[in-house]
Structure formats: C-alpha cells, structure tokens
Design a protein around this nucleic acid. Structure first.
Lengths: 210, 210, 210, 210
DNA sequence: CATGAATGAGTATTCATTCAT
DNA sequence: CATGAATGAATACTCATTCAT
C-alpha cells in the first residue's frame, strides 16, 4: 500500500508532491483500504460509512471529501479489482494459441488471483447495491470482463478453433463455471487453483462423459 | 401454483372456511404476494417491512401477526419456491436412466420453471444483506438442492454412468452453468428453455471443442 | 379464590347465579389474580395488558369487558389489599387501651400481613402510575390508612395518652418506619414480624438513646 | 451547585473554552436540565426520550451523542444529586460528637437540601419502571447513603454513644422517617426543615411517649 | 482541507384498544 | 358476552449527510 502511494506520488515528477497532495492520496488510500476490509466483513448492506471511517484515523466528515457516499467507495474498489483482473485475463488470452490454452490460461489466472487475494474474494462476494444487482454476476466490471472474453471467443470461432455455438451462452457458461468453482475452491481448507483450472478446462474441452 | 389455488378453491366447497379463517389466509397471501414483488424490485437489503405492507391494504401492525420480521417472509417465500423446484428436479433425476438424461432433464426443468415464473426468478435474484450471503449460490434451498444433486451424481459415478471426477466440483459446475445460463436466458427477449438446456447438456456431455 | 367467588355468588340468594353470572365473577377474579402475579413480577410500568391476559385462558378483547385499562386493574388490586389491611389495622387500634398497645398492635398486624402475603408485598412494591405517584407512600389506600391512623393518634393525644406533638408528623413517621422496616424485614432470609414490631414500638415509646 | 457554576465560569477566564467545547457543555446541561423537569413531572416510566428532547432545541439524534438512553440520563441525574447529598451528610456526621448531634445534623442537612432544591425533590420522587425498583428507597445512591450511615451508627454503638440495637433496623428506621417527614414537609405550604429535623431527632432520642 | 457534533428522516417493533364474527 | 385479528399511533435508536469551527 505504501508502495502504491509512493508510486502515485512519484508520477508527479515535474511538480513534486506537496505535503498536501501527499496527504490527499494517503487519505484516499486509507479509506479504500478500510472499506475493503469492512465490506468483506460485513457485506455491502451491513456496512455503514461510520464503520469504514472508524477503521481510519480520519473524521467522519473527511470521508465526504473523497467519496460521495458508500456506493462510490464500493464502486472504486470493484473497479480497481476488476481492471487489475481483466488486464491479467486479457494478457492470458493474447498469449494463447489454441482455444484450450485460452480457456486454461484464463481459469488459472482467475483462480490464482483470488487464491492469492482472499481479501478481494470476500469483497467480491459481499456484493449488492440498492437496486438488488448481484455484482458477482452483473457488476459492471464482470460484464465488461465477460464482454471482452466473448469477443475473443467469437474470434476463436471465426478462426475455426472451436465449434460454432451460441457465443453468448458459451461465455455465460464459462463465467458461471468460474464463479461456482471459485466458491467451491475458496471454501476448501487449501485452495488448489491448478486443480480447479484443470477441471474447468477439461469440462469445456471434452465434457465429463465416461 | 395452479394446483394450490385449485385445492384452496376446492376446500371452500367441502368445508367452507369461516369468514375469519378465510380472511386470515387472504391476508397471509397478500403479504407474501406483496413481498415477492418488493424483494424482486428492491432486493432483500433494500426492502423494508413498510415497503411490503404499503403494497397491501393492511396496517403496519398486521404484518407482525403473520411474520416475525422481514427475514421470515423472505425465508417463507424462498422455501416455497425451493421446495417446489427441488421436488421437480428430483423427479426429473429419478426418471433418468442415463447420466445425459439426468443432466438434460434437470436443466430443462430448471430453465422451464423460471421461464414460466419470471416473478420467482426476480425474487431468486434478489439477495441477502447483512451477512453478505448470496442466495443465488448460497441460500439454504440452493444448497439443499445442490446437495441432493451431488448425491445422485455420486451414484451415477458409482454405477459407471459417468467418468469419476471430483463430485463436488462437478456439482458446482452444473450449478454455475445453470445460474449463468438462466441469467442469459432471462435477459433475452424470448426465453428459450429448450435451447439453454440443450446447450448445457451438450457442454457437460462432450464439451465444445471443435 | 374459589371461596371468594362462591361467597359472592351466594350473596345473590334470591336470584341464584346463572351460569353467565358465575362466569362473570370467575373471569373478573381470573384477571385480578393474573394481574397480581404479573405486576409483582414486572412492575406496573413493565406490565402490559397482554402480559396479564396471557396468564389467563381468556382472549385479549375480554379484558375490556371487565376493566377499562391496566390502571383500573391495578387500582382494583390495591383497593382490595388496602381495604383488607385497613380493616385489620383499625380493629387492632380499637382493641388497644394504651398508646403503646395501639402502636404495637398496628405494627404487628402490618408486618404479619405482608409476611404472610409476600405476593401482595411484591405488588405493593411495584407501584407507579403514569403520573409518577408512588403508591407506596401516596396511593389512595395508603393515604386513607394514614388518615385513619392520624385520627386515632389525635384522639390519643386529646386523651393525654401521648404527649402532644405535630400529629401529621407523627403519623408520617409511623408510616415511614412501617415502610422501611417492612422492606428491611422482607429482604431478610426469614421474616420476623414480631422483632420488627417490637423494634418500631420501642422506638416510638422511648427512642433509642443509651 | 453554586460552586460548580462558579468554577465553570472561572475556567472560562483562565483557559477559554473553544466554542465547540462550550457548546458541548451547554447541550449536555440542556439535556440534563430538561430531563430533570420531565422525570419530575412524568416519573421515570412515563418519560420518553422524546419528551426530554422536546423540551430542548436539539434534534433527536443529538440526545444519543450525550447519553446512551433514558436510563443513563436518569442515572447521571441521580448520581449527581446523590453524591452531593451524601457528601453533605457525611460531613455532618463527622462533625457530630454525640449520637444526638449525628442524628440532628443529618436530618437538618437532608431536609434543608430538599427544601432548597424542590426540583431535585421531585426528581427523587419519580421512580423506576421495568424492575419495579423504588428509587426512593432502593436507588443505588440511597443504598450507598444508608450504608454509609449504618457504618457510622455501628461505630457509635461500639463507642457506647447509643444503646445497642439491630443496626440495620435502626438505619432503616432513620431512613424511613427521613423519607416520610420529607414528603410531609414538602407538601406543606411552607417547608420548615428545622421543625422536621427537631421532630425526628426527638423521636429517635426519647420517643414520643407522654 | 480536517474535524466531529448536530441534524432529522427513516426503520423495526410494540401494544392498547376496537370491532367484526 | 367471548373471541382474537386488525389497527395505527407511538417509541427507541441509527446513520448518511451537513456545516460551523
């Protein structure tokens, strides 16, 4: 976290960060960091702004200098995770030469990411906004990620690397398996991303018939 | 549901309910019905008891003559749907002679049920607040349903009808595909349960490799 | 209790109690009896009409056929105890030939009554009305009892049986000692009305100077 | 109380409170002051937090910035009075050289205190709901005060200044007479603490026999 | 900008009382 | 008269947000 802040500050090379700017970045990061913990613990609905600010050495009013309300912090947090993860996934797809590699890379990346960031897993699982949207399946980041994957899937179909089926359904299925196997993996005593990825890949490549 | 209504109607013929009993049943149903709508619209966390009874011509206090609190109505609603659906699914599995039939029957039953009960779909998609639990994946009814399915899957494996793989993972995958294809189907203009079921079945039987 | 009801019914000799009249007396007594217990347990403020009726096999609505509200039952209960006790006290005073006897008789009667009726003691201690009145010291029954005692005290003074002091103060003091020694006695493991009465009598007759 | 006010005023001179600190003290006092009035009027049970805050120009939520609930304000109020009074009483006993002086000092202090603070008298007379406890006789402050007095009484007995009797009973009697004579005094047109104290003292020293 | 007290709308729940049956 | 469900006013308490310092 210190690293992040540092690097953000460093990027203003020309006009070196004044004390104030530094504080601004620090405070914002402090709020995000506290929010990540609290959302993971109490869930979105159960979390209050005061819960977040309490885990900070800031005052309640200060929160509103950085975010409009609870939803915005939550969004920022999810955007952060989403972008990070989507970048990793896209990279994995680009390096794939076969459809199987594409699938395998993506699952391994996905399961490994959360196995290494259980904090973010908990956050992802705590989702829900006033509108009843399930961020797990419907959050803007997830939608974006699935849309990107669907494009690559369609491309693979066009290239004949995979039999032509309903691309939307296939994408949905890939996502659904990802979510459910992730849950299965995370509630086991020791997470085994490789096993989960292998299972999912085999399923998509050849099914499970005997 | 049609059956229920019918049997209620029948009971008026044989043993006419007193006006009071009648009223009691009517009110209970009114609350449940209103709750179904509101939960679907606002989600579990976003729903207040007042929201529910506002959609009723009953007084606030009356709510508490029927349910202890918001959670209890939600539970009642989900139990109702869950039991109904699980019964249908179990029946479908029992009638299956091959693993493919088992999978196919279940998916068709599942997708058809929600296609015919969009109201219940919306409810199922609304979720829990406080504890961050996602009813879609973790509600007691869903858990029970998946547990039942896992038993049948293990049996199929024991009988050699399907290759032996990690039963928990397979069950999770079956569930994940169900949820994600359901979402995909429901947000299309016209739901096509047969297509979704066929897609899912083929996926599990032979994968999608070209 | 059965005796009471019986005797009330018996008093209508000419027009022997119909089943309904009998029920009316029975129900009223059932409510009073339940109320006595509940008030003693929960205090006046903590008691609800439903608490009372719950200890009865009557329905909520029935309560209002017998009493206007909680306060009225409470009043009825206190009136009952008050009249009973006042009668005993008056009798004791009438039999006294000296002032000492008067004091002694009254204290012994008073302490003995509550020692034998701890239920009523608890009730008496639970007092309070919406107006903040302390029934212990200010309830109408207590006021009446003290007024009666004051008359006898004034008479004793007129007869020269006791030195002339402010009769109101003396009456208040007699009452205050009664209440405080009663509390002291009731919270001991075994109540000793004789000891308490002896102490109080000696105090009023000759003080406690060495 | 005069002293307190004075010292608060003094503190403004030396270390002028910030406007915020000042306001905080003002609000706290406003709540306590309003509570004193309302409790006196409606009794503890009859008082609601809204009743208190309504007599203030503060908002409902503000109450909870200062006190956890109704009970806490009540406690604060009683603690305040109790400590003040107990200090005065203890001082009076320490200055006494004979048992008569001890009794006389205490009664005079007690009656004078309430004669000068009728507001506090009313508060003291208001009482507890839920548990049926009578603050007049059983509040923690009163209990503490009586316990302190009992110790001094036992000491006086040990020193032979007063005949040995049951110390608990004697303490209870002293308390009972204090409460009842206080009530008697306060409901007269003009309170006469000296007369009440003289009466009580004489009673305890030599009784009232002719 | 930071602070943290003040605000007051909002929510769950209770309970005395009424009234149709 | 008995019943017990319906009523809705009332209460305690929370929390997002504002704003004077």
């Amino acid at each position: 976290m210190t690293l992040d802040t540092q690097s953000i500050a460093d990027s203003f090379v020309d006009k070196p960060a004044t004390k104030r700017e530094n504080n601004r970045a620090t405070n914002q990061e402090a709020i995000l960091s506290a929010a990540r913990l609290v959302f993971a613990e109490l869930g979105y609905g159960g979390t209050t702004v005061r819960d977040i600010i309490r885990r900070t050495d800031l005052a309640t009013g200060t929160f509103y200098n950085y975010f409009d309300n609870k939803e915005q912090v939550f969004l920022a947090l999810n955007t952060q995770i989403g972008e990070e993860l989507r970048a990793l996934l896209a990279q994995g797809r680009q390096q794939a030469e076969t459809f199987e590699q594409l699938i395998a890379n993506n699952y391994l990346t996905y399961f490994t990411y959360y196995a290494n960031n259980p904090q973010n897993y908990a956050l992802t699982r705590s989702n829900r906004g006033r509108d009843g949207a399930n961020v797990n399946l419907e959050g803007p980041q997830v939608k974006a990620g699935l849309a990107e994957m669907q494009i690559d899937i369609e491309q693979a179909m066009a290239l004949g690397r995979v039999s032509k089926v309903d691309a939307a359904m296939l994408t949905a299925a890939v996502g659904g398996v990802a979510f459910s196997l992730l849950d299965d993996m995370m509630q086991r005593d020791t997470a085994n991303p490789e096993a989960a990825a292998a299972f999912a890949t085999r399923l998509f490549m050849s099914g499970i018939s005997s």
